[in-house]
Amino acid sequence: MLEILHDLFSYTFIVRALIVGTLVSLCAALLGVSLVLKRYSMIGDGLSHVGFGALAVAVAFNWAPLPVAIPVVVVAAFLLLRLSENSKIKGDSAIALIASSSLAIGVTVISLASGQNVDVYSYMFGSILAMTESDVYVSIALSVVVLILFIVFYNKIFAVTFDENFAKATGTRANLYNMLIALLTAVTIVVGMRIMGTMLISSLIIFPALSAMRIFRQFRAVVIASAVISVVCFFIGLVVSYAFSTPTGASIVIVNLIMFLLCLSAGMIRKKVT
């Protein structure tokens, strides 16, 4: 075991993935609690597909991927938030529409530009090799900003998540904080989807929050547990993926699934006991 860990840290690309992945897992888990409780889980899924389209276009034109993808996904996040607030247009179908369209555009652009040797598979399911050095710095900076904003606005995020009308009535600018949550989610998804892949990044947002909610009944406890679960699962998933040569993103999701099932049964046992 120690040998595996020693090997693991001797590869620069794995250390990069570890740093970025840990930060992204942390951000995703914190935001995930709010998104799951606000019934916005699908927004994460929709945004990752938009991110895929943006990344594909960026690579096809040889642009730097993050500076292109982040603004596009942020705009999409605001759009999706508007759609889910507007009861006339059904938010869930709008998300499905935008998600599949972005995916289609991305795949088409990649196939047209296939002369440049682009691997669709690694976009879909993530690649641990995807991170360049400059990506790592951008990712670290973004994750730190997400973390700081989350901590500073923690109380407001709680109030807006728990009871938006009360927050609005007593003068908290709920729409502003909804947009902040969407913005932070967008950034987290774009940074994380390179490692986790388009199809799998949303699980990083949803799983830890759901797992933590099986066990804890306090908001703060859920947030902290969600962060810890997320980082631990990411690390275990990464080690497993290295040891057994399995795809990184998928391994992390499977570890998260196992953790969720454990928490689910722990929660059920506790309910029976009390």
Partner: peptide
């Protein structure tokens, strides 16, 4: 099913 304590 919102996880929040009374105090929070």
């Amino acid at each position: 099913d919102f996880p929040a304590s009374v105090y929070e």
